[in-house]
Computed example of a mutant assay.
Amino acid sequence: MNFKSLPQLLDYFKEESTCIEYYEGIRWGGNPACPHCGSLNPYKTTRGYKCSDNECYKKFTVKVGTIFENSKISFRIWFAAIYLATSHKKGISSVQLALDLGITQKTAWFVLHRIREMLKEKAPKMLGEKNMVEIDEAYIGGKEKNKHTSKSRSDVYPHLKNDGTPYVPKTMVVGLIERGGDVVIKKVPRAVNYEIQPIIDKHVKAGSEIHTDESHVYRNLGITYDHSTVVHSAKQYVVGNVHTNTIENFWSVLKRGLYGVYHQVSDKHFERYLDEYAARFNTRNLTNQERFENFLVQSESVLRYRDLIKFT
């Protein structure tokens, strides 16, 4: 198999049996393992497998313990959804995915969130081992001038009329990117040093070269890192090789995707969308097939609908 486009992928995965055999190879490499107890000696049945361990003896298929668990959608549709969600630079909405694949919008929404579960960072990425790291923060949300504070903030200004529209402040995100390498993006509650410093320490190797703007939240980086800054408030954007243009470019893709494709993202699921954009960016140098297979290897994550929609 060597596909470079969606039609080629669908031509190859015409039969469900082909999809199952392919995914079993990706997940088990020819050695099926019971997802319940880990036994390596299951035997094949007419509908899948059954564990031979007397204490387990449970039936299972290759879907159990993965993002595909309890899904009635065929693997062919799932594979097409994964291809579309991971190859579109700015993502794809559930409405558009539903139209493209002939499923309901509700199903497409759940499918996309399961795919995002697969794209989550499984282990902390370490940046700065090969190149300098740029760090910057961004604010996601509508323009403050459009939020009609005078009409909605009756909790702060009791004398003002409240039209029932809640005031939603912007969401702050911090981004760390290694030039020519990977990006790490995290939601943070506020722009203060004690919220951002632990993220940097977790993902950037000590002694690495770091470039930021003049924000006060980065004032202590020089203790652990080789820290250089550019003063954006003075219209200083590049000093030699010191700049934050790489992370600024990533912000443009993220914002255009969130505003143009998804329009509005709930705070509850916001971090899932960040995982999606980071995963796509970090696999940008792979071919379509390599990216597709790379994500399938990481698909052993279960996300149930009741857990996705429950109040948090």
Rank of each mutant, 00 (worst) to 15 (best):
G207R: 02
T45E: 03
I20Q: 13
G257V: 09
G240I: 06
E121S: 01
F13L: 12
G164Q: 15
D182Y: 06
L40N: 15
E16D: 13
Y262H: 15
M126C: 05
D11Y: 02
E290S: 13
D307V: 06
T283L: 06
F75I: 09
E214S: 15
I26N: 15
L286G: 04
D155Y: 00
G207Q: 02
R190V: 01
N282M: 00
I247D: 08
R153F: 00
K147E: 12
R27P: 04
K122R: 07
N285C: 06
A278G: 03
R114M: 12
I199Y: 01
Q96E: 12
I20C: 04
Y49L: 01
E290D: 14
V217T: 09
Y259L: 10
I135W: 04
V265D: 07
G180T: 13
E21C: 10
E134K: 10
Y305R: 10
H232E: 11
M118Q: 00
I177W: 05
I247T: 07
Q264S: 13
D163I: 01
E24C: 07
G180P: 05
E21A: 14
W251M: 02
H263E: 00
G175A: 14
K59T: 05
F3Q: 14
N288Q: 12
K147P: 04
L296S: 11
K268P: 03
L6P: 08
Y218V: 05
H36Q: 00
L274Q: 07
M1F: 08
L9F: 05
N31L: 04
Q8N: 06
K145E: 15
F270R: 02
S52I: 10
G128R: 10
Q289S: 13
P169Y: 02
V95C: 03
T312I: 11
P198F: 12
I77E: 10
S299Q: 15
E300L: 00
I77Y: 06
D267S: 10
E24A: 06
I196W: 03
N193I: 00
T165S: 09
L303K: 11
L160A: 00
G25N: 14
R179L: 13
K58Y: 06
V192K: 09
F110H: 07
S93I: 11
G102I: 12
S301A: 05
V302Q: 04
L160H: 01
A279C: 09
Y262M: 14
T283P: 02
I196H: 03
K125C: 03
F75G: 11
H88Q: 04
M132H: 07
S17M: 14
P166W: 02
